[in-house]
Design a protein around this nucleic acid. Structure first.
Lengths: 170, 170
DNA sequence: CCCAATCCGTACCCGATTGGTACACATTGC
DNA sequence: GCAATGTGTACCAATCGGGTACGGATTGGG
């Protein structure tokens, strides 16, 4: 085991697809159809990704979802955390106390948090861009050709840090 | 999420306790009582650990379970694999095909297997001895004071590799 | 030789989580 | 105003994790 769950898996697939045509708007139904995954699941996942600040949503006709940041700036760690909460092997690690509330004489806490942080770093080191086109990596810079949605189109309820938005103009 | 399950957690606790008095025999009931975990669970876990070759069992009166190898030679990775199967974030990684059977255009396989192997290595780097006494590490050699059960006491159905048994004599 | 202590295997149960669905509502473009 | 879209909530079914029960096999000791 030690699996990521299906929702997260779908999330990666969806975001990868979006990363391959960044700047475009996508709607869940078409994405689901294109990649053979259940349509309501796609909706569910994308909604969650909006809440996490990785996607922004445009409502109404001709609406859809768009990436908030450069795929090269989004890490797999972020995606996993967005879809299944903090990366922690055990509860002790997650609640941060480091000591075990349940079992007498459990000395594992220190080690688990060490292991968790290794995993964290591993996942931090992989970008969405890499996920989307593994064959093209390693590559210094991901070749983005569009302007990012810093123009207010996504300024509303989305809590993305504007400082992190990268504007690429050519 | 991304949790190890409770059974594995119990397994670590039990093995850690055993590692603190290596060479002794332990029975599930007493271990369970000592560490506040459900007795039948302890049995279940220890049985699985026998099947995985990490423990050996002695039947009958005065029976019990014993460690097969030096706690310093047992890795956390082994324990996790014994109790919850191969370490793989996704099915694709586990079945080894590297490509996704379920979703069209899923390019993540290569990355997942890379991430999984990082985790694998992290877990390979932690020994049971370290788990049992984190405060005493880093230390060059774990101070084992007993002779290991290479004397046939555990020779029967246990499939431990004798080449890996370390004999310490003082 | 029998009994008690212990391991072993199997089968079962329950509740939580996961994966998936449905539907009414809000928002926007045309 | 209508159609196309996202939003929120609620729900359902299946699976799985955690936990239990029990009868049998094996061994040591009296």
């Amino acid at each position: 085991m030690l699996r990521i769950n299906r929702e997260t898996d779908y999330g990666i697939v969806i975001l990868s697809a979006m990363a391959r045509s960044p700047g475009e708007r996508f709607n869940p139904s078409r994405l689901a159809a294109a990649h053979g995954l259940p349509q309501p699941m796609a909706s569910k996942v994308m909604k969650q990704l909006v809440r996490a600040g990785l996607l922004c949503s445009y409502r109404g006709a001709k609406g859809g979802y768009g990436l908030v940041r450069d795929p090269g700036e989004i890490t797999v760690a972020e995606i996993i955390e967005a879809l299944e909460g903090p990366i922690a092997f055990t509860e002790c690690v997650e609640d941060g106390t480091g000591s075990c509330n349940h079992v007498d004489g459990c000395t594992a806490g220190a080690i688990w948090s060490r292991v968790s942080s290794v995993v964290q770093r591993a996942l931090d080191g992989v970008s969405l861009a890499e996920m989307a086109r593994p064959a093209e990596f390693p590559v210094t810079v991901y070749p983005v050709q569009v302007q990012w949605a810093t123009d207010g189109g996504c300024a509303g309820p989305v809590s993305a840090d504007p400082a992190k938005l990268k504007l690429i103009d050519r």
